[in-house]
Design a protein around this nucleic acid. Structure first.
Lengths: 194, 194
DNA sequence: GCTAGACTATGACGGCCGTTATAGCCAGTG
DNA sequence: CACTGGCTATAACGGCCGTCATAGTCTAGC
């Protein structure tokens, strides 16, 4: 338990991340986000005066940091352990939600931003992906992988896991995750052995 | 050119697939879909009496079949050529749309269906993924890969490409696709050599 | 020519959306 | 005690949504 009494603001952000991961960004309304967090609608615009874009941005960063912390911790035991933790984390989200939830970062990435302005939520998503890749790549390099190979494999891991989670939701099965896990584990082992 | 004079119905489905691939399912309104296809709103409910779910389902199947046709054709020259065609197809969509479009099948997969009913569009997405995996796995087997390895690798390819396309959109760069392409090509070559 | 059925045109229905405004509450500081 | 500033409460704004109904138009076959 990192925070004993989460503030209303934190509850709103965490709830928004969860709802976005289930229904997508556009289908997540600020009204429902507030209700889900037992916060009044007015408070949402008090905490996030720039509106929905800002809330989405913070939800993406919240999830990104949460995953990155777990990844950093588990990578101390090496890339194979880190990969396993990464896979297990997403598997748990998919299974616990009965195949209804996924990754809010992916969800934000695939919804075209309003044409006029800078899509700050999209930029946040790009940053999160880059952080996850960076953590994996650094660990692979530290354990003997070639730098270029490490970077490419890190990208593959993040992309494959994100795609696999979506496939699990569509099929209502964890079989895609089993397949992907097997393949990625073999790849990581080979990369740090060369 | 497969059809010389696409019917209004075909134009609506193709347009819906494109719009879903850019903005997601929930943000794609039937009104705009009709306008985009220069069809009247009333016609949409004439052709798709079961409403939005039916339109989404047909859009998913339309894209699924289009990709499967291309995949089948290119796989005749072997799994490496098929993989390259699959990668190039998505690269073209991402680049031509200036990083705004992606895969409508993925988009439908990550939006929670209305709680009450059978999510037929989601089932269609699962079917499309399965078809793509099946084509790739069969080709891998025909070229000497072990059946289990072929199935796992096919899942990895589909998942990785779907995830990579989303990452490219977030980063507004094709670098993730370059990384993933390199890794997957090496994997396929190794799998059919054993 | 006429009639049936495929398609179009138009408008309405209730409902939820993002956002803003405004007034009230209520802690903590002086 | 007064009062200030963070937070709540409530209502409203214009706008788009999915869906349905109804009437009009067009075209193919008799």
């Amino acid at each position: 338990m990192t925070k004993h009494n989460p503030t209303a603001r934190e509850r709103i952000v965490a709830g928004a991340a969860d709802m976005i991961s289930r229904r997508g960004l556009n289908a997540t309304s600020i009204r429902e986000t507030a209700k889900h967090a037992r916060a009044p609608l007015g408070s949402t615009y008090h905490y996030f005066p720039e509106g929905k874009q800002q809330l989405a941005t913070e939800a993406v960063r919240h999830t990104g940091e949460w995953v990155a912390r777990r990844l950093r911790r588990e990578l101390e035991a090496g890339p194979v352990a880190g990969l396993r933790a990464f896979l297990d984390l997403w598997r748990k989200i998919v299974v616990d939600s009965d195949f209804r939830a996924g990754c809010p970062v992916l969800a934000v990435s695939i919804e075209e931003p309003p044409t006029d302005e800078t899509p700050i939520a999209l930029a946040a998503a790009a940053g999160v992906f880059e952080e996850w890749e960076g953590l994996l790549a650094a660990s692979l390099r530290e354990h003997g992988a070639e730098p270029e190979q490490a970077a490419q494999l890190a990208t593959l891991i993040v992309a494959a896991v994100e795609g696999t989670v979506a496939m699990c939701r569509a099929k209502r099965s964890t079989q895609p995750l089993d397949h992907t896990a097997e393949q990625l584990q073999a790849l990581v082992r080979a990369a740090i052995k060369g």
